[in-house]
Design a protein around this nucleic acid. Structure first.
Lengths: 221, 221
DNA sequence: ACTCTTATTCTTGCATACAAGGATGTTGAC
DNA sequence: GTCAACATCCTTGTATGCAAGAATAAGAGT
């Protein structure tokens, strides 16, 4: 209970950032956070240090910590790398997946189908995360799983935006179908290519994203 | 100058880990480090938190921080991911490199040639790092550069070991030649494949690595 | 003699205190 | 009226202190 307070703080603040509760550019006041969480500044600082090391916040010397504002180009770069890592995970999953992985992947795919049919964007968003997590797991590379999970998490806010674009949800789900087939039939390179394309934010899709981001600039808060 | 002490501490400790001054499994005593660096425990702890977030050390609750011991399989996984990222960097470099990048890459390649010819493993080790850094830079993806640099750094100790294997240095340099050619002639996929293979620790090479690691187990300290 | 239990010590976890460097507001001069 | 300089305040950076849990050592019982 009085255990890893700093761990809890890190997760809470990270979550706040990822859910846009702390928007990019916001300053994270140590005393304010300390008061909010009912702890002293010390564990807050330690949590912030961790977030800074991961790259979620920027710690300007003597001037406090701010949530990083990646900028469209940088977000694009992050999606590029994510695409590559996901492709790798898919490739490995195609070669290494077990029966359990197969069951889990199909289950996750099934859940995506339901939320896609119900046109429930929020549920689909969540199920989609589980789907990708299932692929990571099936890669059986613990390090790759960690890397993918971390980056996936960092890209959360932008993926969420993307789902609002046109009928991205239906497109996304239909792409999932091909990916599942490729993985389960062991076609590593096909799985890689499909996943890479699935993630890659390029061409018109990227334009949409930038447009959406630009809109968000003029937010009330 | 007396600025970010914690930043300096982080770098110093990280360097100590990467250079095996702090060996895997070693416990990092806060008071000991504090005394050694002439500071209090607070900045030490904050530095350790950062290293923990990166994954270089493990912070066991109430039981102190220890340098992580990756284990051969995990090291293999890390090399796998590194290979993929390097391949991606090479591919992007082939498509995006500027004249400056070209000059830098050739210069780094030239330095590697000299140290390889001189059979100077230590210098080659350093020049090799610059060579790969030149490729990252030529990819013109700041995020990818950061990811590659971080992982490259984490794999330092093991790459160093690898260089001692057989005539790895000569082989490494000859592979560099093909990579340079592929990048400068814009053959993205060839560059990717060559770099991936260059990094990948597989088959006999991996056996060599494990053997070398096993030897290191019985170290004097 | 060996093991289990208990007490002591040592280290970590968190809070508080103090110093120092930016941010800000006010006042004065042009 | 505006800009600049100075003083004040506010936040961060670091040290220290105290409490609590884990490692360790000592003692008793089998």
């Amino acid at each position: 209970m009085a255990e890893n307070i700093v761990q809890r703080l890190r997760d809470e603040i990270e979550n706040g950032i990822v859910t846009n509760q702390f928007a990019p550019g916001d300053r994270l006041d140590e005393m304010q956070l300390a008061k909010h969480f009912g702890v002293s500044r010390t564990p807050i600082r330690e949590a912030l240090m961790q977030l800074g090391a991961i790259g979620l916040i920027e710690m300007r010397p003597r001037r406090g910590a701010v949530v990083v504002e990646p900028g469209p180009h940088r977000i694009y770069e992050m999606f590029e790398v994510m695409a590559e890592l996901e492709g790798m995970a898919g490739s490995l999953a195609a070669r290494r997946h077990t029966d359990t992985d197969r069951t889990e992947l199909l289950a996750a795919h099934g859940r995506c189908e339901q939320s896609a049919k119900a046109d429930d964007a929020d549920t689909y968003y969540y199920d989609n995360e589980l789907f990708h997590q299932a692929i990571y797991t099936a890669s059986h590379s613990s390090f790759l799983i960690e890397q993918c999970t971390a980056l996936h998490r960092r890209l959360r806010p932008y993926r969420r935006l993307q789902l609002r674009v046109r009928n991205r949800m239906k497109t996304s789900f239909s792409e999932h179908g091909g990916i599942v087939e490729a993985i389960l039939s062991g076609e590593a390179e096909l799985a890689r290519a499909l996943l890479r394309q699935h993630i890659a934010v390029q061409g018109d899709r990227f334009s949409d994203l930038v447009a959406t981001l630009a809109q968000r600039e003029v937010r009330p808060g």
